[in-house]
Design a protein around this nucleic acid. Structure first.
Lengths: 172, 172
DNA sequence: ATCAAATACATGCATATGCTTGCATCTTCG
DNA sequence: CGAAGATGCAAGCATATGCATGTATTTGAT
């Protein structure tokens, strides 16, 4: 028990679920990114291209919802992909407010080119973490992004806001 | 097997562990940020202040390791906090390469002020996701950021890189 | 004491994200 | 048809992050 300033490393340093998620995401993203490095795509970009390929053509809003991100943020993120000719963004003739997003031939090729690297990262993850554990983790994460979870969270948050204590809400 | 294009939404849209983590992190960060909004701190900033308070004084490198982030990135992220007078960053007299990071009185007060909001978010999360499930999730995420996991992942990645197939590595 | 190697950061560059605001485009209702 | 309200984005602003490179220091070996 000598020199101990960094002991919280063992203690996990706090038990905030949000922080725990962010830490894990940083680490895993880095691992996947390293695996994808040679392909020239980041894990985030691959995720976007993959999502587009699964629901092509799609819109900014639809994509944002599928990826659980802000549409404004997504609009920014799409720029590099469009600039690099991996996707096309055009006004939807049926609703000129919307944009139709599609993969270009290059985009499709790029995505295909990353398949193998991605599969390696994914299988490495599952070999290290366990197949069953990986499935359970994804299921848990899936719950977190479900509408039900969000509703329940917000409901609890509101309830708590009223009475920090615990002795029921005054009927008043 | 009717209407098929957007079904992946129900299917989770791909099974990339990295993407699943990112999605969940975005959502949960948003929920925690909303809960912390009134305090003026983002969940990321609170996480940093909290970590500093747990190992004060600390260094850029130590903090980066504890938060599982790049020290360069952390240096950037500390700027706003320093600018707002929540932390101080000074050269370590014992090793002038290092910086000693500390909370200011304001920083400590700000952190304390967010305690209640954070607790509400945290308890709302656990009420919605389940106490046991929450603990298990944090444990799982804890494993993902462990050195053992990273080592195992990289070992598998390297092995895979050699032979995409599965028929063992030649004893050479 | 010196110089090469290792450290600990700081910076610049690029992407990632969220929020707010403003614009263009539907929709709806009278 | 015309105006109010709802939608779908784009752009600006600010923080979050990672990586590569440059700089200041400390260490280690000679």
């Amino acid at each position: 028990m000598a020199g101990r300033r960094d002991d919280q490393k063992g203690a996990g340093g706090g038990r905030c679920n949000c922080t725990a998620l962010r830490k894990a995401t940083r680490r895993i993203s880095q691992l996947y990114d390293t695996a994808l490095a040679s392909s020239g795509l980041k894990s985030t970009q691959r995720a976007i291209l993959a999502q587009i390929s699964r629901s092509e053509p799609t819109t900014v809003g639809g994509l944002a919802q599928a990826l659980v991100m802000d549409s404004g943020a997504l609009a920014h993120t799409l720029k590099p992909l469009e600039r690099d000719g991996l996707i096309t963004v055009e006004v939807d003739p049926d609703d000129r407010r919307s944009r139709l997003i599609r993969l270009t031939a290059d985009g499709r090729a790029k995505l295909a080119a990353t398949d193998e690297s991605w599969a390696h990262a994914q299988s490495s993850f599952e070999a290290a973490f366990g197949q069953v554990e990986s499935d359970l983790l994804r299921q848990a994460l899936q719950v977190l992004i479900s509408d039900d979870f969000v509703s329940a969270f917000e409901k609890n948050l509101l309830a708590n806001r009223q009475e920090p204590n615990d002795h029921d809400r005054s009927p008043q």
